[in-house]
Amino acid sequence: MTQTLTHEWARFTPVQRMKRYVALMAVTLVVVWALGSIDVIWEWVWDAPIQLVDLFARMVPPDPTNLPSILEATWQTINIATIATMIAVVLSLPVAYISAQNTTPNVVCLWIGRFILVSSRSVNTIIWALLFVAIFGPGIIAGIIAIMFRSIGFLGKLLGEAIEEIDHAPIEALEACGASRFKVVMYGIVPQVMPAFFAISILRWDINLRESTVLGLVGAGGIGIILQGAIDTFQWQEVSMVLLTILALVIAGEVISSTMRKKLL
């Protein structure tokens, strides 16, 4: 037993330990730098909890007098999300087809497809909405187009990946039968990507439902307009009513999308 006392034990070798310290130091430095140089008034920070509690106190109880117009705006929000998802799904099909490595007709198409995907994905829905509100004026159409533009990138990317993962063997068999390119796609590729297609579309619909709730804040229709109006006029009890409605909407969306997924797949 006494022998073991001469053994030294450390969890990490010195090099490992050094690496861990360096990483930890670097993280700490970055955080300290951010904390030190950020442009905030620290009194406000200490004051923040009080302000939040105060705001919350003004929100209860929720005021349901405006419920009919809130529900109407909610219905509009659902429509924006659903119609935009439907159109985006259709438009994303050719994009996915040309940006999947195994189906793209040529390299030029591949790069065009990838360019569409990257530009659509990198710009957030709200920024798209800002642009389309400037073009089409405030209203639902700017919202639908904004959601659509953002969704094409998401759907196209995931669908393209699904196409890249298909089993090539049936394709070979169909080609050996003398089927044309289009028929090979219809019989060999479409059935194989069908489950992924539904799963991705449902997922995006769920996301779009959430995104549609904020479009109104930049003037692009839906429940966000009512929220913005209530906030601007300091009607906090109506604000909390709108927030509760959004919460219900989002949770309902999640329930619907998970049941659809189970039913279809």
Binding site: D47, A48, R210, V214, L227, L243, V250
Partner: peptide, 18 residues
């Protein structure tokens, strides 16, 4: 459940812009 933009707008009202 709440989109960050909604959360942001509430916080902006509570603790000010910035």
């Amino acid at each position: 459940s709440f989109h960050p933009v909604i959360v942001a707008i509430i916080f902006v009202k509570a603790v000010g812009f910035g």
